[in-house]
Structures are given as C-alpha cells and as structure tokens.
C-alpha cells in the first residue's frame, strides 16, 4: 500500500474512457503537485474536457484511478469531490441564470451538505456567507453587478462569474475549462489578470486554446493528442518539443 500522497493535489493513473467504440482517453497518467499551475492543451477532440469531467466526477472512467490529495476519488460522487475542495468551471457557462450575481456566489460559497437544510430565517441574514459572496464579487470584477440577474449580464461578465463560482467554493484545486472561450481581446486581459491573482497555494489546472494566456499563467504544460498525453514540461520545453509543434502549435511558436 502506498502512503497517502500529500505532495500531489491530483494524481491521475492510467485512466481510460470509452464512449461506445470511441476511445476518448487512452491510459492517461499525470500528477499535479500542490500549488502548481498546470495548463492542459491539445487540439479539439484530444480528450481534455473528458479528462476534466472524469476528474470532477461527471464521468466514471473505464479503467484507472484518480486521487485527490491522497484520497481515492475514482468512484466518488460529484458532490463529494466538491466538498473535498475540488472546484471547476465549465466550457459553456453553467450559471443560475434567473438568480442574481450575489445569489449565485452565495450558493457557491455555502455548498456544504449541512448548510442547505436550513428552513428558517432568510438566507440574507447569513452575514458571513454574504460577505464572502461580496468579497468574491469584488475579486472577479462584478462589484457593481451584485444585484443584477445573471441572464442580463454580457457574455464576458458571465465568464468572470463562472470563474467566481469556482473561487467562492474556497477550493484546494481549481479546474478551469476554457475560461476565455468567446471573449474579446480586452476581456481576455481582465480574465487572465483575475486568474493570475488567485492565491498561490490553490492548485490550478487550465484548459485553454489561447497560447498567450497559457504561457502567461502556466508553470507546466501537459499536451494531449488523440486521448493520450504526448508531452509534459515547462513552457520552454513544450515550445521546443518537435512532436507538439507538429500536432498543435504551428510554426509561429517555433
């Protein structure tokens, strides 16, 4: 038996996932040390989001195991993983559209199993949780939109809130699935700053196609192609890796 591994926030061991005959992930293995900022890149259909959903618990892998801070979570429910401190965002925003920004962040900030079953007293009286929602709103640049209904926010602000939802959970590991998808260049800058300002002790895994953001944020990069990890290393190593250049980066980054 191995001892619980406290050095690694996440350990993925030879995980495979098939959808019928399609092999979305073939024996993917990698470790993320605590506090590292890891980027996950690869062309469309490489299996990045499948890997994310497997780690977050929305998909169960056919083979392999996943441990989170030394705890085996391969078959745990989504809710249990969240309560262990695993926060994620989605490629397509999954927000509570008919609720206000504050309500969204409040819900995210008080997601423990016991906190939902309180029937008496308005949630607005819970000062601690509301202050925290306010703090996160400030942090992700949604200060003046606190009372706005989410469906009325622009796409860029919704993406900021999407990241805020993950931050509000106070996670130990935060997984961002293409946080900058569909954003304008100026909105990308706001979002990149926001991610860079996250506390350093929070481990971060990022899927992103925008190489500028990736090179700006990531300590290390993992490259996936056709469901397998083909390379892993520092940004400089990845840039000079010939195989990666062939499948993904293109000539401008050589």
């Amino acid at each position: 038996m191995e001892k619980p591994d406290q050095q690694h926030a996440l350990t993925v061991k030879s995980v495979s996932k098939n959808f019928g005959g399609v092999r979305a992930m073939r024996s993917v293995s990698f470790d993320v040390p605590v506090g590292e900022r890891r980027a996950l890149i690869g062309p469309n259909g490489a299996g990045k989001t499948t890997l994310f959903n497997t780690i977050a618990g929305e998909l169960v892998p056919n083979e392999g195991s996943i441990s989170f801070f030394g705890i085996d979570i391969t078959r745990s429910s989504v809710q249990k993983r969240a309560n262990l401190g695993l926060g994620r965002t989605y490629q397509i925003s999954q927000l509570f559209l008919d609720l206000s920004v504050e309500e969204n962040l409040y819900l995210s900030g008080s997601g423990g199993a016991t906190k939902a079953f309180k029937f008496l007293g308005s949630w607005k009286k819970n000062k601690v949780e509301r202050d925290w929602a306010q703090e996160v709103a400030d942090q992700v640049g949604l200060k003046e939109y606190k009372n706005s209904t989410v469906s009325e926010l622009s796409h860029g602000l919704q993406r900021q809130l999407e990241v805020g939802m993950a931050i509000a959970m106070r996670p130990r590991l935060i997984m961002l699935d293409e946080p900058a998808a569909g954003l304008s260049p100026s909105e990308r800058i706001i979002l990149t700053d926001l991610i860079k300002k996250l506390p350093r002790d929070v481990t971060l895994i990022l899927i992103e196609h925008d190489m500028e953001i990736v090179l700006d944020i990531a300590d290390r990069i993992t490259v996936m192609y056709h469901g397998s990890v083909i390379a892993e290393g520092t940004p400089a190593e990845i840039r000079s890796n010939l195989e990666v250049q062939k499948v993904y980066l293109g000539s401008s980054y050589v």
Partner: peptide
C-alpha cells in the same frame, strides 16, 4: 431549478 448540474458541482446534495 436553474441548474442541477452546477448545484452538484458546487457541493450540494
């Protein structure tokens, strides 16, 4: 009501 998937992902039963 708005999004059960997200509610699970932020830790609600």
């Amino acid at each position: 009501r708005e999004n059960p998937k997200r509610m699970a992902a932020i830790g609600y039963p």
